[in-house]
Computed example of a mutant assay.
Amino acid sequence: MNEAKKNSHMVGTVSELSVMLEYAKRGYTINLPTTPARYDFIAEKDGRSVKVQVKHGSTFNGERELLGFSKTPYNKRDVDVIAMFDSNDGTIYYIPTDHVEGMTSIRLRIEPYLYSVKSEKALIAEHYKKFIG
Rank of each mutant, 00 (worst) to 15 (best):
A125V: 03
V11K: 08
P73R: 12
D78L: 13
G133R: 05
L21W: 14
G27M: 15
E126V: 07
S70L: 07
V54Q: 02
T35C: 10
V14L: 12
E63L: 08
A125I: 02
K45N: 09
Y28L: 06
H9L: 10
A125D: 01
R48D: 13
R107M: 10
K51W: 00
H99V: 12
I92F: 04
M10C: 14
K6V: 08
M20L: 09
E101A: 11
L66S: 04
T13S: 08
L114T: 04
H56Q: 04
N88A: 01
Q53N: 12
Y115I: 02
Y74C: 05
G12S: 06
Y94N: 00
Y115V: 05
V81F: 07
A125M: 04
D46Y: 08
G62Q: 07
T34G: 06
Y94E: 06
L114N: 06
I30M: 03
M20P: 06
D86Y: 00
D80N: 07
D86P: 00
V79N: 09
M20G: 11
H56T: 00
I106Y: 13
E126D: 02
V50E: 11
K6H: 05
N31G: 11
V52P: 03
K51T: 07
A83K: 02
G62F: 01
R26C: 11
L66H: 10
T29H: 12
K129T: 02
L32F: 03
E22R: 14
H9T: 10
L21F: 14
S49N: 11
S105W: 12
S18A: 10
D98Y: 02
V79D: 00
V50C: 10
G68D: 09
S87V: 05
K5L: 15
E111N: 06
A4D: 14
P33Q: 14
D86W: 01
S49A: 12
S15H: 08
N75F: 01
I42T: 10
I42L: 03
I30W: 07
R26Q: 10
L21N: 15
E3S: 09
S18H: 11
L123I: 05
G68P: 09
N31M: 13
